[in-house]
Design a binder for these strands. Sequence first.
DNA 1: CATATTAATTGACTTATATCAGTTCGATTT
DNA 2: AAATCGAACTGATATAAGTCAATTAATATG
Lengths: 231, 231
Amino acid sequence: MNVKQLCNGCEECNEKSALFQMLSDDELHIINEDRYSVRFHEGEVILKQGTRADYLVSVVEGFAKTCIEGHHGRNLILDYIRPWRMVGGPAAHLGDKHRYSVIAVQETLVCFIDVRNFSKVLASNGEFAEKVLIHCSGNYLAALERMVGLSQKQMHGRIADALIYLSKEIYESNIIGSQIARQDMADYTSMSKDSAIRILKEFERDDIILLDGKSIEILSGERLHEISQRG
Amino acid sequence: MNVKQLCNGCEECNEKSALFQMLSDDELHIINEDRYSVRFHEGEVILKQGTRADYLVSVVEGFAKTCIEGHHGRNLILDYIRPWRMVGGPAAHLGDKHRYSVIAVQETLVCFIDVRNFSKVLASNGEFAEKVLIHCSGNYLAALERMVGLSQKQMHGRIADALIYLSKEIYESNIIGSQIARQDMADYTSMSKDSAIRILKEFERDDIILLDGKSIEILSGERLHEISQRG
DNA sequence: CATATTAATTGACTTATATCAGTTCGATTT
DNA sequence: AAATCGAACTGATATAAGTCAATTAATATG
């Protein structure tokens, strides 16, 4: 399978992906070696929890989510992934199995990067490694914050957090698109689907949001923040 | 305050702390510059959530805990820290405020390392940076696992997890010492103190553990694992 | 040693959230 | 358009977990 058939070549990736901008041509060459891209359809598994983490994945185009298969058959959605974000790194750096799955929410194009090549560059370029470390630190701190929210806030606060996250960070709009099903809202906030629906409907009655099919329009970000704060 | 008065000097630290073993004398010299140590008493705050993360902290002697001030006045204990572990890194690498506090559980000696010095070595030594990255990745994945447990397991499973963690990783013994109060068990498992007590008493009735004042002896690690698995 | 103080414990009660059993809605297929 | 299917929704009920108030045990203080 030829990469060129699927994307505009690694040059574009390297340009858009903030992390790669600081690398020399030689270093980019190392990382791009054995690199290949695959197009995934909606619902398809890009990385499966439990498989060997031999590759990092860079999302080039589309929309994906990372999620963990938890207990009692429940899933926890960790993040939604937009282009130019990398996933799978932590387990790959550890030489471990993937601890979460990555699933295409819609048609998504990704590049697989051999972790051995990535490590070569890490070891030889401390500034690059520091950048990656800063990235990892950010993920870690965000996970801690999320851990507190999930375990201490009650349903209203958690739904408010989810709406703020999706609106600000993922859709960059006060309208959250129809890719997010009610079950996804539940899996992101760690509650039952029925409860998620109930809270959303309640927010709608209170004119905080507007539900239109699966898509959600935020009418009052301010009140959402209040609810988020109150927990 | 002279470091030598408080510890046996940086040489010992550098020898015992796995991370530092790979550094050259020059690099160690950079890291040890401006390094200073302080002895903290039980209950004293070593790092306070919200303060500027200018220093990394290496625990040299004693016993500490990291915890987050959460919602409704509740705390979440993230980790217990034994000697030769570093804390405060993530926020420091990001040039951010500390997102958690570090508190001495008993008399504890720590070294403060200027993050600017640490960064110098990171940038100049890719292999060291990669080691630190691997460490950070491990913390991140552990946090994800914990997030799932806290948000999806019910009280029995969470208490079982806490007991296994404290026994295996912190006390390295089937007896968990009296430093861990019931409130700490609650703060580690994200439940009310009363509930934590109830579950512990129940485990005692079922001959899974033995309570002796504040200390807890694990009688059947096997059954704890079953309970942890069941969630 | 007596007292004061804090932590542990317990039972009764309340509240948050999940579960279940439907019904309705919307999209897709026939 | 009718039929079908899955997702969204809703009310009733069950369960998990928190809160409160009181008691006991353990520890610190004068």
